[in-house]
């Protein structure tokens, strides 16, 4: 099984590396986003220069996160890509379908709280996680 020996740990080690890379970029992006959010109030008293620098840093790290995410998806095997794509499709659908009624309900004050973009991000994250787990279990 020489071919097996050659390929041994290929996929798994590649995915381990990609997982670590993606986790590092995600942590960096969360840090940069947090800095951008609280920095003007806590660290530099609203200085526009530092705020712009923080925004720039957030965008640069965000681009890195997107690149890491793309590499992660491209390195998945075909079944994992299918699960990922299905989860992504459901997430986009839920986001589009939920956002418009939420916006209308918010405008006419049918809901007690004020709807913000962060609520949509949370909805998308939860939908993606549930869809990905469901897809993964389905093919187990």
């Amino acid at each position: 099984m020489s071919q097996h020996k050659r390929a041994e740990n290929g996929y798994r080690s590649r995915m381990r590396t990609n997982n670590t890379r993606f986790a590092c970029w995600a942590a960096a992006w969360l840090g940069a986003t947090a800095l951008m959010g609280v920095g003007p109030r806590i660290f530099w008293s609203g200085s526009p220069v530092f705020t712009l620098l923080a925004v720039g840093l957030d965008v640069v790290v965000g681009v890195g996160l997107i690149a890491a995410s793309t590499k992660y998806v491209m390195d998945l095997d075909e079944l994992q890509q299918k699960v990922y794509l299905n989860a992504l499709g459901i997430t986009v659908g839920v986001a589009v379908i939920a956002s418009i009624p939420l916006s209308v309900m918010n405008r006419y004050q049918f809901i007690a709280f004020h709807v913000e973009i962060s609520h949509l991000v949370i909805l998308m994250s939860v939908t993606f996680a549930v869809s990905a787990v469901y897809g993964s279990v389905r093919y187990r």
Binding site: A7, G10, R12, D77, Q80, Y139
Partner: peptide, 11 residues
């Protein structure tokens, strides 16, 4: 077999 085919065991 998954290692030899360069895919996950789940696949």
């Amino acid at each position: 077999l998954a290692d030899a085919l360069d895919v996950s065991r789940q696949t």
